[in-house]
């Protein structure tokens, strides 16, 4: 049999991956870059007129873009933090029950089974100022009810809705990480005179560190790019107070027809996340090098 030189073999094996990337990523990416640099509307989509960086300038000067960014950041960060904190507490607190009765996990998982847009619609009904049962009963019992979906409360209502739906995800990750810590390690710590709190802080949480970081990361990304449940619950809602970055891009693209601007905004988002990821990777390898050197 003819042997292939190692270097060529390596290249050959990379072909499917590179093809995949070219077909599915590079074409849309190229089109995106062209559109971002062009003045383009639905009528001129096949003949974009290059205008340089003007779209980026417009986007960066648009206060709505910045408020959408701020919304997404705040929403992503806050929900990720609350979901992980609650999920961690549940995973540790409920672990004796969940370990004994496995089926309880199915119940805890239930919110995750519902499509986020359905969740949005459902809460829109439940919280509706006139038709919703929650404001109705609150008014009946306490004489007053907050307007859950007005400008002052919409953000927090959305946070609660998101947290209620996605805490189970964090819980599931933490549950798996928690029960995978061997019982002998806990027993060893107990023999070493560590109480329950110290075992938690010194042994269990550090051993779950990687899972906690991953859960925070996934939940932040999911919260940052939030679209469907916000869109169905409040739209851009209550005077633009709940315009997430995804909704901003959607609105300027489909409603405003400013394709160039919308694409420029998404390109900015793309480059920002690239820089964040790259910085994260650099930090990690720097730390590892320092640890090896130490």
């Amino acid at each position: 049999m003819r042997t292939i030189p190692q270097q060529r073999e390596g290249r050959l094996l990379l072909v499917p991956l590179v093809t995949f990337l070219l077909v599915f990523l590079s074409f849309p990416a190229l089109v995106d870059i062209v559109y971002a640099l062009s003045d383009v509307t639905f009528q001129t989509m096949r003949a974009p007129e290059l205008v340089g960086l003007r779209n980026f300038g417009t986007v960066l000067a648009d206060p709505e873009f910045w408020s959408a960014c701020w919304f997404s950041l705040r929403f992503g960060g806050l929900t990720a933090f609350i979901e992980c904190a609650l999920g961690l507490a549940l995973a540790i607190f409920l672990s004796p029950i969940v370990c004994r009765y496995g089926w309880t996990i199915a119940i805890l998982m239930l919110p995750m089974m519902v499509a986020p847009s359905m969740v949005g619609l459902m809460y829109r009904l439940v919280l509706h100022e006139f038709a919703g049962p929650l404001p109705y009963y609150l008014t009946l019992w306490s004489g007053t009810s907050p307007a859950f979906l007005d400008a002052g409360h919409a953000f927090w209502t959305l946070v609660v809705v998101e947290v209620l739906q996605w805490t189970p995800f964090a819980f599931l990750l933490f549950h798996v990480a928690y029960i995978s810590i061997s019982s002998e390690i806990r027993e060893a710590a107990a023999m070493d005179k560590a109480g329950a709190w110290r075992i938690l802080w010194r042994i269990e949480l550090p051993m779950m560190k990687a899972t906690i970081a991953i859960a925070l990361g996934i939940r932040f990304i999911d919260g940052f790019r939030v679209f469907d449940n916000v869109f169905t619950l409040t739209g851009a809602g209550a005077g633009g107070s709940t315009t997430s970055l995804s909704i901003y891009i959607y609105q300027s693209f489909f409603k405003g027809g400013q394709i160039g601007q919308a694409v420029a905004a998404s390109a900015l988002l793309f480059f920002t996340s690239l820089i964040v990821l790259y910085a994260g990777g650099m930090l990690k390898s720097y730390r590892e090098r320092r640890r090896v050197a130490a």
Binding site: S182, E184, I185, E187, A188, M191, P206, K209
Partner: peptide, 12 residues
Amino acid sequence: AMVFQSYALYPH
């Protein structure tokens, strides 16, 4: 003090 079968060292 106890020495466990799996050693039960703290991995982190």
